[in-house]
């Protein structure tokens, strides 16, 4: 029974790089999100100023 649930860990090493990519993706995602938010805020500021 225990052999049936054993994880095939021999090839896990091939996917180790994923753990190193995750922080980069989080940072890049955060940058894209905050850049979009700032651009949106700038557009809204311009629109508000234009309507006055």
């Amino acid at each position: 029974m225990s052999a049936a649930i054993a994880i095939p860990s021999a090839h896990l090493g091939h996917w180790l790089w994923v753990f190193y990519v995750i922080p980069v993706l989080i940072v890049v995602g955060g940058i894209i999100r905050s850049t979009r938010a700032e651009k949106k805020r700038e557009r809204e500021d311009k629109r508000t100023r234009g309507s006055r």
Partner: peptide, 8 residues
């Protein structure tokens, strides 16, 4: 890999 996370 946790060192990479900590460094980030």
């Amino acid at each position: 890999w946790l060192f990479a996370w900590a460094a980030s």
